[in-house]
Design a protein around this nucleic acid. Structure first.
Length: 423
RNA sequence: GGAGAGGUGGCCGAGAGGCUGAAGGCAGCUGCCUGCUAAGCAGUUGUAGGGCUUAAAACCUUACCCCGGGUUCGAAUCCCGGCCUCUCCGCCA
């Protein structure tokens, strides 16, 4: 969330950001509630001061065996007044907090202004689109031919929107996971994390999934725990409510987890195959950095993710999201989209975002500057590195042969006992 | 799931209704002293909100001894609920 003081002092800038992000929230209402709150707070603080002074006096009088009955009577009234003011203030606090959760992060000045995804800008394309002298098949056909992907069985076990990988399909995905984790830990210096797949409300609120995206998550009501929609939630929240030393930063974490999304409201979109599913695997990268470095860190995060596709030799493009397509918490975001020859489309396999101080403020994650002075808020970033199903789709469809077999990219062969082809 | 014990500042650790933002120690910072180091002496040391200020610092003030309620003129301290940690028992991959 944004700092209330910042909103107070930059109201116009915030209103513009709300508009550019197609969000709706009443900044003026927040400001008027805030003003009311501060005036009540001053009154309450004055009374509390009086209470503290007189309480000391009563203690002294009692000690000297004097009668303090009059003071006690008076203080009873003052306490009642304080109670009433505190209740009003708390009420305002709750209202203000609820409203603050509806104020989006402010886009960085380099982010193009635009209404929806049509205004996203392609900033890079990499690789040659593969050419086929036959009609390339979509992955669900390849999966069926090879017996490595079974959607009907997944539907039987759980329901639509789930997948089951079998044999070399499962093995290929495991190879990809290991390859990605090895790349990020060994070459890019991320620390590997294996976090819980369930997270509590405080964590969900910390990274911003709550309150806005509650409908898109699976909730275990009995224990009030959510299935994580991304490793970002448990991994970022590892440091919630902590005060780091400046020398601790930057911190790089990478994690493989399953991710669970209800995808409410997306029925009918990308329903075939495994383009959009309720449970998928993902390798995630999370960074905690000093404020002045966060935009450089975003670029290197993007490169770390791109390198996965480069090593797999899968063509892709990178788009910078415009203000209207940018998520609520992000200040800037790049999408990486891998080309998939069978479905003839670019598929989003990664989103690399800089949240600047937006998440960390919510999470109360700060660091102590070496030079002294006030505690500063850490900047957080994350990006997929990468989402597995769509990477699998691109791999299967781009590396297919006319017979319906799939060549295994060289970089993965060591993870597959040297196997060269799935047939 | 049952029975106990406990959660206090950067750390250790006292306090058991008012004199406690919190003793004492350690660590840190600042002086003094010393050829250097160590020791010693003195002082100092949290976070957040509000006020004042162009802004910051200073200053004033409020809150914070796991979290949320309650009792009381007054709560770290008493009562209730929750969370977490530890020990023992049961169950279990």
């Amino acid at each position: 969330m944004l700092d209330l003081k910042f909103i107070r002092e930059n109201a116009e800038k915030v209103k513009q950001a709300v508009k550019n992000k197609n969000e709706k929230t009443d900044i003026d209402l927040i400001l008027s509630l805030d003003e009311k709150r501060r005036s009540l707070l001053t009154q309450a603080d004055d009374l509390k001061h009086q209470k503290n002074v007189v309480s000391d006096k009563i203690a002294l009088m009692k000690k000297q065996k004097q009668d303090a009955q009059e003071e006690i009577e008076n203080m009873r009234k003052v306490s009642d007044q304080i109670d009433s003011l505190d209740k009003q203030i708390k009420n305002l606090d709750n209202n203000i907090d609820a409203l603050l959760f509806t104020v989006p992060n402010i886009p960085h000045s380099s982010v193009p202004v635009g209404f929806d995804e049509n205004s996203n800008i392609v900033v890079k394309t990499w690789g040659e689109l593969p050419k086929f002298d036959f009609e390339p098949r979509p992955h669900w056909e390849l999966g069926q031919i090879l017996g490595i992907l079974d959607l009907p069985k997944a539907a039987k076990v759980t329901g639509s929107g789930f997948i089951v990988l079998i044999g070399m399909g499962a093995r290929l995905q495991r190879a990809l996971i290991n390859f990605m984790l090895d790349l990020h830990t060994k070459k890019h210096n991320y620390t590997e994390i294996l976090p819980p797949y369930l997270a509590n409300r405080a964590s969900m609120t910390g990274t911003g999934q709550l309150p806005k995206l509650a409908e898109d998550m699976y909730l275990c009501e009995k224990d009030d725990l959510f299935l994580i929609p991304t490793a970002e939630v448990p991994v970022t929240n590892l440091l919630r409510d902590e005060t780091l030393k400046e020398d601790d930063l930057p911190i790089y974490y990478t994690a493989y987890t399953a991710c669970f999304r209800r995808e409410a409201g997306t029925y009918g979109k990308d329903t075939r195959g495994m383009i959009r599913v309720h449970q998928f695997d993902k390798v995630e990268m999370v960074k905690f950095v000093k404020p002045e470095t966060s935009y450089d860190e975003l670029e290197s995060l993007l490169q770390n993710a791109e390198e996965v596709l480069q090593l797999l030799n899968i063509p892709y493009r990178v788009r910078v999201l415009c203000t209207g397509d940018l998520s609520f918490s992000a200040a800037k975001c790049y999408d990486i989209e891998a080309w998939a020859s069978g479905v003839r489309n670019y598929l989003e396999v990664s989103s690399c975002s800089n949240f600047v101080d937006f998440q960390a403020r919510r999470m109360n994650l700060r660091f102590r500057p070496k030079a002294g002075g006030k505690l500063q808020i850490v900047h957080t970033l994350n990006g997929s590195g990468l989402a597995l199903p769509r990477t699998m789709i691109a791999l299967l469809e781009n590396y297919q042969t006319e017979k319906g077999t799939v060549i295994i990219p060289e970089i993965l062969r060591p993870y597959m006992d040297g196997m060269e082809e799935i047939k």
